[in-house]
Write a protein that binds this DNA or RNA. Structure first.
Lengths: 209, 209
DNA sequence: GACTTTGTCAAACAGTTGCTTGATTAAGTT
DNA sequence: AACTTAATCAAGCAACTGTTTGACAAAGTC
């Protein structure tokens, strides 16, 4: 008989690897939730995508809701260490747009949860994310006080408007298809659009000095 | 026995009024689809909201898909006669924002269908809507050629960005809640935000002269 | 008045959904 | 080797989905 590979302490051998399984499920969940939203996502599809049995989802996470929470939290953690501080703001915006458009998984998740939003809640998901954004608002406010940004603009609103504008090819692809006449997901257009968002920020009154 | 109200030719009497029923269903559908999106909307809920039997939905429209189409088309028609031509552009933007935020049903429908968008298609829903927007793009282009708008901005992209920005309280309410610290649906904030969008348009280089 | 068409309903049907159960096998412990 | 725990699976269940069926009464037609 074939010699059973006596479990040497190398966990790469692809059998009974809980860490790997968790990750597989979380990745699949991110893809599926981002594609179809919370209601539209199917546990069966996630399991299939991850190549594991459906029950493992309930085994590792607490059902659909638990999986969604875990997935969002992981995504939030990842995002945390992605902001490079000290970049001039329009360029920061352009990079954000580029990043958001090249890999729309995050923006899509944000958009879905925005539409599913029912009212002011103490949802940790929201408060956590807004913490990061608060820094950007401070930065904007500082720029404003140094006179490099019109005084009548509300920094917080401005940030949100720029975010929404940057996410447009993700949230309003059909409008873009109609108005611009191009595939909103083609790399050329994405780059063009990111430039436009940066230009918008610049024309508000902010040169990267 | 009670004298059966011999069908006098007054169709207001609330029995067997197909026109009324159709409208009830369409209204309920708009509310439900706008609230939960296509997948999330429940036919049972629509029927209940309209106060009619569930089967009538299949009777009058061709199932869920048909109902959705009919509902979108009606909405599109309504929108068509709502654009007041000849208004200075920032004010036009401000009004659009205000309208979009006071009654978010339309923007929500647009956002849902954007997320459910799968790729470039000849969907009449999209092409129809973009026809209206094409006019606004032309207007922007004209302003640009008369030198009242920076030459490096792409009018089509600009329009989309402004739309997305204006819709932000609808599409990203959770972000606003976190960043601005207020209820994104309160009338005061909505007015404030609409002003901000108009200001944004104005600061790009366009005074309402 | 008999007959057809139209608007409406209650009930049920076939297909999915997320989740639970019970069993099986690998890994760890003694 | 015996035993416990952890990881995995296949099968099935109750609830829910959009749609269909079959009935029936109001309105229209002759």
């Amino acid at each position: 008989m074939p010699p059973k590979p006596r479990r040497s302490p190398k966990p790469h051998e692809r059998q009974r690897d809980p860490e790997r399984t968790r990750k597989l499920i979380l990745d699949a969940a991110a893809a599926e939730f981002s594609a179809h939203g919370y209601v539209g996502a199917r546990i069966r599809a996630i399991a299939a995508r991850a190549g594991v049995n459906q029950q493992l989802v309930s085994y590792y996470f607490d059902g659909k809701e638990g999986l969604y929470q875990a997935m969002s939290e992981r995504w939030r953690e990842r995002q945390r260490d992605l902001v490079p501080p000290g970049t001039p703001f329009p360029e920061q915006v352009r990079r954000y747009a580029l990043e958001a458009l090249r890999d729309p998984e995050g923006p899509r998740l944000m958009a879905w949860s925005g539409l599913e939003y029912t009212g002011p809640t103490g949802d940790p998901d929201h408060t956590a994310r807004s913490q990061q954004l608060a820094d950007s608002v401070d930065e904007l406010r500082a720029l404003q006080e140094s006179g490099r940004l019109p005084a009548d603009l509300d920094p917080a609103c401005l940030l949100v408007m720029l975010m929404a504008a940057a996410m447009a090819p993700t949230t309003l692809p059909h409008v873009i298809e109609g108005v611009c006449g191009t595939d909103p997901r083609s790399p050329e257009f994405i780059e063009h659009f990111a430039d436009q968002v940066a230009l918008l920020a610049r024309h508000i009154g902010l040169d990267p000095t």
